[in-house]
Design a protein around this nucleic acid. Structure first.
Lengths: 197, 197
DNA sequence: TGGGTCATGTAATAGGTTACATGATTGC
DNA sequence: GCAATCATGTAACCTATTACATGACCCA
């Protein structure tokens, strides 16, 4: 029983929910569902499909969506068990790497206005993220056939939402702080700066 | 002018704030300052120090802290400029990978109680994170010599704090939701489960 | 004298992105 | 006929962690 990495488990997860997906489907599916907290490239997906097949955790399935030449897959019983076991394991807090925070941390070394500009940029990104999350949430039909996955999907959405909202609130006060800071810095250290690009 | 990666910029950043650091110092320093949003291993640091030296962005400095054999470094003027330029560049939202959310997303495929257990685990981790952040914030002397970096450092702390608080609040409601969900699932689908480990 | 921590480094391995190559099919 | 998108795959490269090797110094 050799090792599987994150990519392998996303694939097993997707196939446990819906059968007969191709590598291409998976990439698209990941973007549209777990996209905001998980990404995969084809360079990871295709080799992993081979590896999972070799381990009999998934198996090639006959194409239901015919037309184009495509290889679809289905999860095996062994695959389901493997996923099940993995889900029960404690999660890793993966190595956190936040470039925004790094740049902010060294903000005093930057040109005036730079830190503030980054915060504005972050605000913009979070506003857009919030819109996207809300749109997804709104797109869920209220009277759809009961789907046991839905409650879990909604929870991930709402955590994403909570993070975006928290960041936006923080951003408001951060922008005030930085504006004051740079105003006073300009008074004491340099003549009033022209607007920094 | 060849490329520098994140590791390189952290090193430049640290050396721009404080001179005469060794590779060992940097690793420790990173853990204690930017640790909650950035990590580096020796396997990255030492080779990067060589590369930065070769590019004359840092230079070996005579050890001020004598005693043990150690190689200290200082930033060069070119290094400062390079850091300065990088700080002004827009930040990347690096590939997001959140194993907790992934496991929650596939929660319906897990054994009863598993998702709830993960949320409990998350709560615990965030409580500890919050304590740590608060302790750091409290440890800042109020009447210290004015440090231009402090405001920026405080901002990073407060964003970390905001995330932890938001996650804790989300966790409370998520736990309620999951408890209800699994109770109703137990009524309809299986006899009341004994507590899952 | 021995454990802890300071200190530097490398090799093996894993994990991942990007860019490229290739071609079929669909719909306009 | 042509553009978009469906579809699969590989090679080059970068980034990073882990484990190991090595040894000095501090202090109890």
């Amino acid at each position: 029983m050799s090792k599987i990495n994150g990519t392998g488990y996303v694939i097993l997860g997707l196939l446990s929910v819906q059968s007969n997906l191709s590598g291409y489907d998976m990439r698209k599916g990941i973007e549209q569902s777990v996209g905001y907290f998980w990404g995969e490239s084809y360079g990871q997906i295709y080799p992993t499909l081979k590896a999972l097949t070799a381990q009999k955790l998934i198996k090639p399935a006959e194409a239901k969506r015919a037309g184009r030449k495509r290889q679809e897959y289905a999860i095996t019983e062994a695959g389901r068990e493997r996923l099940h076991a993995w889900l029960a394991l404690p999660f890793h807090n993966d190595p956190p790497r936040n470039e925004f925070l790094l740049k902010l941390f060294f903000g005093a070394q930057a040109a005036p206005g730079v830190a503030l500009e980054h915060v504005r940029d972050l605000q913009e990104r979070n506003r857009r993220a919030l819109e996207t999350l809300d749109a997804i949430e709104a797109s869920v039909p209220k009277d759809a056939p009961p789907n046991p996955n839905l409650p879990y999907w909604m929870l991930t959405l709402s955590l994403g939402r909570a993070f975006a909202v928290a960041a936006l609130e923080w951003g408001e006060s951060a922008m005030k702080m930085l504006a004051e800071l740079e105003a006073s810095g300009a008074r004491t250290k340099r003549r009033p700066a022209t607007k920094a690009k």
